[in-house]
Design a protein around this nucleic acid. Structure first.
Lengths: 340, 340
DNA sequence: TTGTAAGCGTTATCAG
DNA sequence: CTGATAACGCTTACAA
């Protein structure tokens, strides 16, 4: 049933080691035999046995994608699930499989990272999770397996030690705010999410402040408001902070969904967007095209991020260019729609 | 660095086969030695080498979860991504890893199912995808690996041959409609999605018809409307089918997001929900609690589904109770909120 | 109840 | 350039 290199060797009239070498493109095999063997392998529908391959010291063909499941449907969670689709696409292109899992066992709290390491099930890690223990980073380093950190800096590992690809949340916050300023806004509210312990909102808020300063606009503490990352909280802003809302001419929402709720409420109140008040969101969720008016927002380059991360982890797995770390912070982009 | 059964054998003063047997709970090992060996294994932080284990004929510890990536954020896609979180949780509990992937290579179209089979990378399949070729089902059957089909019946395999767990979309549609009828609705519109080729909307619509018939309400073709599964389409219903909307007293939306858009538009038009018009959705997406008013909907028992499917695939992998198929269709439940 | 030895499919070393 | 052969870590007859 299952075809092995021995079967191919029999058909080709060579030894199984020749087949192994040929299929692995060893330079010590003549092009002729290579072609012949590869041809036979193809017609016999051969694939390397993953277990055998990994046992004899080569690769498993699996990359662990460590992430943090969150049950919200917007914000980080939606973004991460979209990012994952991209990641898997790039890995698949290389015939690698993604083992997607959380860092810690939901009941025992045992580290899945350390388990995978000991089981030798994978060739490397893509980490989309900022809350991995220092101990786990240590284990990974000891194992010699490559890691690429994505999206956000780790809390318990010096980021200088890792290969990483992040997006620049500071710049995103700054761009969003500058965009509003460029449109003439003088008093800008920013609404962030209090759902996550992640640093991204801090960064975005810092960008907001910087943009204000750069344009000589006074920073006012009351113009930074943190609420749940939900539609309803955005919608209810008119009730929760009425006096603030009525005295600003621009709002930078740090998640699209909050902006979405707000837009709806504004329409009901007869506030014209963008004439009376300009609004910008963050993330470029699919819903942005659907809001009324369509939402100007900040797009994070997740496709690019996924591509870079996958290319990099595959290089590292294959020990190419692995003398030094590659660390890149990608800029987000402004997506102009009609709310600003 | 890596600890193997030989290392444990050395410490325990037994042979490595005894260690293997003990850790695999073989009945031919005395409890005493078992305990001793397990203890040593634990303190040495031992895990079986996955490659070796799979090579020598035992299991890989991997389950392939085959799904269909869709880029929409609601409807099937959101449901599936939430289902997947549940699946992974149950698998993780058994120390199994999930390899999540699409059925076919995005570029070459090659079957990932057949590749995984030939690579012998996995112990079984969870399929959340109704569009797998008959050829692939054939290959799986020949391989002897177990399959559990989830969520929806396969298009190219007789479902009688599979273990499966579905939710009853017919019943869901019927329940939703009966709920509206029980509240006094006489003319009920149903809005479905035209995004997918899936059968679920057909089923729901059938349930809708049956409920009408059961209560002596005439079925009218014009009261079944298919639009994109988006917020905006729901919102624009007042423009796209004004005369229909103004002549119904209840609407059964087959996706929550469409209902969501509609609720917003209704509020703007001054139509009171549920006084003037009763509305029910489908899926119980997180957003339902956030809409104004909160959306009555049909909840699909995805947690239960995930649990049953994982328990079953693990039984099958371990060759327990595998003489006959287990096939179950779970009922959805009505979630009462304020839109009806 | 336990140990010995063969074998799983691959890669790597060493000869030729 | 190619072929034997050992080795990877585990399971499993077969022996004791």
């Amino acid at each position: 049933m299952k075809v092995t290199i021995k079967d191919i060797a029999a058909v080709a009239g060579v030894s199984h080691s020749t087949v192994s070498r040929a299929l692995n493109d060893s330079p010590q095999i003549s092009q002729l035999t290579k072609d012949k063997i590869k041809d036979i392998a193809r017609t016999m529908n051969f694939e390397f046995n993953a277990g055998a391959r990994s046992l004899s010291g080569r690769k498993t063909g699996n990359i662990a994608v460590i992430y943090q499941a969150q049950y919200d449907q917007f914000g980080s969670s939606l973004y991460v699930s979209q990012l994952f689709i991209e990641l898997r696409h790039f890995l698949e292109r290389m015939e690698m499989d993604a083992i997607l899992l959380e860092a810690y066992h939901p009941e025992t709290g045992a580290s899945n990272i350390s388990r995978l390491l000991r089981q030798q099930k994978i060739d490397g890690f893509l980490i989309v999770h900022n809350n991995i223990t220092g101990k786990d980073y240590e284990s990974i380093k000891r194992s010699g397996l490559p890691v690429v950190q994505l999206h956000m800096p780790p809390l318990y590992c010096r980021k200088e030690e890792l290969d990483y690809f992040f997006t620049d949340h500071f710049m995103g916050g700054r761009m969003a705010t500058e965009h509003l300023i460029s449109l003439g806004c003088k008093r800008i509210l920013t609404v962030l999410s209090n759902d996550f312990d992640s640093l991204e909102f801090k960064e975005r808020t810092l960008g907001y402040k910087t943009a204000l300063e750069d344009h000589g606009i006074k920073y006012e503490e009351e113009l930074v408001v943190a609420v749940d990352c939900t539609y309803l909280r955005g919608y209810n802003l008119f009730n929760s902070i009425p006096e603030i809302i009525s005295n600003v001419d621009g709002i930078f929402f740090q998640t699209d969904i909050q902006a979405f709720g707000f837009l709806t409420a504004a329409r009901e109140k007869g506030i014209r967007i963008p004439e009376d008040l300009k609004v910008i969101g963050y993330d470029d969720a699919p819903i942005c095209e659907s809001t009324i008016p369509p939402l100007t927002t900040i797009h994070q380059p997740r496709k690019k991020l996924a591509e870079l991360a996958c290319d990099r982890i595959i290089d590292l797995v294959n020990k190419r260019n692995n003398e030094s770390r590659i660390q890149e912070v990608l800029f987000p982009t402004l997506v102009l729609r009609e709310s600003s």
